[in-house]
């Protein structure tokens, strides 16, 4: 895969946990088309899973259907992922994430998902535009190309 090649994809997910399978399928298809390693596709899937699960768990006080838009582009060895939702304002950076944990008694599950996203992505930018949360994630994938396709 030539890292200079620009590719993009976009899709939308309904606010239902069953859409995690759709997310996985879309990311696998996109990752394979770029020749990304299984590990890289896994990490992107995990970060987006945590965000998506968070949005549908806490974003919507009503029980109506809502759409979450995801757009991914690949430019010069970096993946740029944009997630848009119309849920309540939520900046992941405002979540206190765990310090280094070395005892099980100290381990709390709150904030774990956001902690994983921050560690797996290289950059996270949050904006609130009108009624939308827009989160832009960046991940450097230069070291993640499948050896067979480079």
């Amino acid at each position: 895969m030539n890292p200079m090649v620009c590719c993009k994809t976009s899709f939308k997910l309904k606010n239902n946990l069953s859409e995690l399978d759709t997310l996985c399928r879309n990311l696998q298809q996109f990752g394979n088309s770029l020749g990304l390693t299984k590990k890289c596709i896994f990490q992107i899937n995990l970060a987006l899973d945590e965000l998506f699960t968070n949005i549908i768990s806490y974003g919507y006080p009503d029980s109506a259907d809502h759409w979450i838009n995801i757009a991914i582009s690949h430019e010069n060895g970096t993946l740029i992922i944009r997630i848009e939702d119309t849920g309540v304002p939520f900046d992941p950076d405002s979540v206190k994430t765990p310090e280094l944990i070395d005892k099980i008694e100290d381990c709390r599950v709150g904030g774990l998902g956001i902690h994983l996203i921050k560690k797996l992505m290289d950059e996270i930018v949050y904006e609130r535009c009108g009624n939308k949360n827009i989160l832009t994630l960046k991940k450097n994938i230069e070291t993640f190309y499948d050896e067979l396709t480079t």
């Binding site: 299984k38 944990i101 902690h115």
Partner: peptide
Amino acid sequence: QDYVKEVFEIAGFDSFL
């Protein structure tokens, strides 16, 4: 798998599990 183990490490779970 190595990338699954890495998640346990990032979460800090490998220190007590």
